[in-house]
Write a protein that binds this DNA or RNA. Structure first.
Length: 346
DNA sequence: AAAGCGGGGTC
DNA sequence: GACCCAGCTTT
């Protein structure tokens, strides 16, 4: 039996019921695919529900402010996805009258849509025979065909795309693409794959040569940078605080945060007090400084560890403040969100 | 070709 | 701790 036949037969029995599998509407498919980039179904699902509820059509999404979109995205990470999502919604509405492109080639031109997402939308919505290659597909193909080319090398990317394109069921590319991803997600898992009940047991090279645990091959590991964040949580007599929008490059672009002082290392109370006394935020001001968390809280991003201390700064008044009770209106990194939740307020 | 970009989950 | 996740963009 062919690879495709075994796979789609497995899928017909084992597929999960997921809301985006009930539609071919390109808006819903596009939205789900952006949410699911580098994100597990379990984590993305509630966000998908929230987005289709608040923004039932691409027109609704296009009309929103970017901050509203980021607020709804809060906690999901990789916030460029949300910014690009909003940008593309506006583009589709303003330039394409709300109609999404209907070919792989045209979809690829949308901001935030790369090879994977263009292939997914083109196949699922328009039955175009373009193979998706995501983390699941790399794993399934590298194991089944015993390919040890690094999946994040230029040659590996080409090789796996070509193989997937060769294997795809041109009669039903939508089902094939979803089946191979589902198979990777639930059966051919990274750890503890279910080889005992696998339909590919006979032909899987990794299984038959004992290489399941060493495939796929991935190059290098990134080194984690240590950073030291100090957030100033202003508390004024009229119950205001200060939030600033993160501009420019780097993490959390366009999200809000308490005024930040980044240091070279973690500082104790006395050293930090001395520092902030001369800092523009507090120079020549009267304030009372309190250290909220004794030991720095380590917030782990994939490439940075943020050693974070929150400091409350009680003052008579603040400039450019916002009522503390309105703080949850603003999109914030989850690190800030968790602090606010635990802190409560005045 | 390599780096930058989140947060949650698993082992 | 290390690794992974329905990847994309920028340098």
């Amino acid at each position: 039996m062919s690879f495709s036949k075994i796979l789609t037969r497995w899928y017909s029995v084992n597929k999960r019921n997921l809301p985006w599998r009930e539609t071919k509407n390109p808006y819903f498919i596009w939205l789900s695919e952006i949410i699911l980039q580098q994100t597990q179904v379990k984590q993305g699902l509630p966000y998908y529900e929230a987005f289709i509820t608040k923004f039932p059509t691409v027109f609704d999404l296009a009309k929103a402010d970017e901050s509203e979109v980021l607020k709804l995205w809060q906690g999901l990470g990789y916030y460029s996805r949300a910014r690009n999502l909003h940008f593309t919604a506006k583009y589709v509405v303003d330039e394409l009258n709300g109609a999404f492109p209907n070919t792989y080639k045209e979809l690829l031109k949308l901001k935030g849509v790369g090879d994977y997402t263009a292939s997914a939308i083109a196949s699922i919505c328009y039955d175009e025979s373009t193979a998706v290659v995501d983390g699941n597909v790399y794993r399934v193909l590298s194991r089944c065909f015993g390919i040890d080319t690094p999946i994040n090398s230029t040659s590996g990317i080409k090789e796996f795309k070509a193989l997937a394109q060769e294997l795809i069921d041109t009669k039903d590319p939508a089902t094939f693409n979803q089946a191979i991803m589902e198979f990777g997600a639930t059966q051919c898992r990274p750890k503890n794959p279910d080889c005992m009940f696998c339909q590919f047991q006979e032909k899987c090279i990794a299984y038959n040569e004992g290489k399941v645990d060493t495939l796929p091959v991935k190059l290098k590991k990134l080194k984690v940078k240590q950073r030291y964040f100090n957030f100033l949580v202003f508390l004024s007599e009229d119950k205001q605080t200060v939030l600033e929008k993160r501009e420019g490059k780097g993490i959390w672009q366009n999200l809000y945060q308490f005024p930040l002082i980044e240091t070279e290392k973690s500082l104790e109370y006395d050293a930090f007090l001395k520092l902030v006394k001369t800092h523009p935020y507090l120079k020549n001001k009267t304030f009372e400084l309190r250290q909220y968390n004794n030991a720095p809280k380590v917030h782990k991003l994939s490439h940075q560890h943020l050693n974070t201390t929150f400091w409350t700064v009680t003052t008579e008044s603040v400039e450019n403040g916002i009522p503390f009770e309105n703080i949850t209106d603003y999109p914030v990194p989850i690190l800030i969100g968790k602090f606010i939740e635990g802190f409560g307020g005045f």
